[in-house]
Design a protein around this nucleic acid. Structure first.
Lengths: 208, 208
DNA sequence: CGCAATACGTACGGTTGCGTACGCAGTTAG
DNA sequence: CTAACTGCGTACGCAACCGTACGTATTGCG
């Protein structure tokens, strides 16, 4: 999967569901016109196309690849058949849908109450959880789109992070240096969906 | 149901599911410590306890009555049995879960990109959709909690709304006067979950 | 190798909303 | 009746972030 490759488009029928292996995808919510913001990240812990699990056929969000890598995909129709044949699969995937919802809810809290640095730390941690290396290939421009802020604000905040020894920054790439430190910055804005995931699906992320 | 009566507490097992008739409930997301904000409103169009529909037994949110009124309730265990016996019921309720998720997602967008006046207009409309009269009994203090802003900010914004002839304000009560006008203020931050609801469940709200 | 495009650094005034604080009015309780 | 409480109006300095803009460094491409 290449960067910015589309998995779901808002209002469109979901033709394929994707199960990321090493790539990471962003789910963006959008208003009727223009305004958009990220609500969740999906990596190997989840899937795109949860709307099918919930019995709908169209996506309410825009989902696309944020960090390139590999993913498995399946035709929507085949997936639906599988869901019907294997009740335990649906049961499992419903739990991921719940985690997804919790992630969206926590994003709402963060967007409403957290400062930019806290939100950015949260985002870096979520991305880090879903990548194999410590490198997150992403431009400030895109991160700004995700967080719904100016590109320049990201640049300034990221430089502060670098000065504090939390990350290393190169053109189009961010490297996690001091994860604990970033967790400290994110504070209580990071961790709730991750804990929920562990509780429901019993699988450990980097967060431990 | 009296105001502030609890339907779900975060991390607790959901003993009862509620189906509001004339009351309106708020779902709040909270971080590990203190920070909280509303992510969705639930009225007669939906239910509390969607987590049970998704196969979990604990609530990730705090849900309580915001506007008093009547509601039906059912024991969680009975509800689960019913879900298993009636697949079409589960199918229906999964769609509401999806609408709930979209509502949370749109709240995330609004919290990230909208101004206070836009968010407040959005909230008033959502509450209005779920009440029978045009009166929304609610203090500025509580609305501030919902929106995650200062109480004083709500007061100022609400007075501006009143001066503009959009609402009438009395102690602890807001009356919708010019709904169209409020919709104009909310702009594209209102309407997405409502359209989704109509699409999935074919039921018209006041908006329609 | 040179040019264009991309990505990042920086700056400045302006707006929004915060934190805090105080006063007043309506409402309830003794 | 009066005191306490709750809800609302208002004020002031301040921090965060925006919109806009322009400059610089790196990269890709012809």
């Amino acid at each position: 999967m290449k960067a910015r490759q589309v998995m779901e488009a808002p209002g469109k029928v979901v033709d394929y569901v994707y199960f990321p292996e090493t790539c990471v995808a962003s789910a963006l919510a959008l208003t009727g016109q223009d305004q958009r913001i990220e609500i969740a990240l999906v990596g190997c812990e989840g899937m795109s196309g949860t709307t099918l699990v919930l019995g709908d056929d169209r996506s309410p969000h825009s989902v696309y690849v944020q960090i390139p890598g590999e993913a498995l995909r399946m035709e929507g129709k085949v997936f639906l058949k599988l869901l019907n044949d294997k009740p335990e699969l649906r049961c499992y995937l419903l739990k991921f849908a719940q985690v997804f919802m919790v992630q969206a809810a926590q994003t709402a809290v963060a967007n409403g109450k957290a400062k930019l640095t806290e939100r950015m730390a949260r985002w870096i941690l979520m991305a880090h959880d879903r990548t194999v290396s410590d490198d997150v290939p992403l431009t400030h421009e895109f991160l700004a789109l995700m967080l719904g802020v100016r590109r320049a604000s990201v640049t300034v905040a990221m430089n502060d992070f670098e000065k504090a020894g939390l990350v290393a920054v190169r053109r189009g790439e961010i490297t996690v240096v001091n994860r604990k430190g970033i967790e400290k910055v994110a504070g209580s804005f990071y961790g709730v969906p991750e804990a929920e995931y562990r509780r429901l699906i019993h699988y450990d992320t980097r967060a431990g």
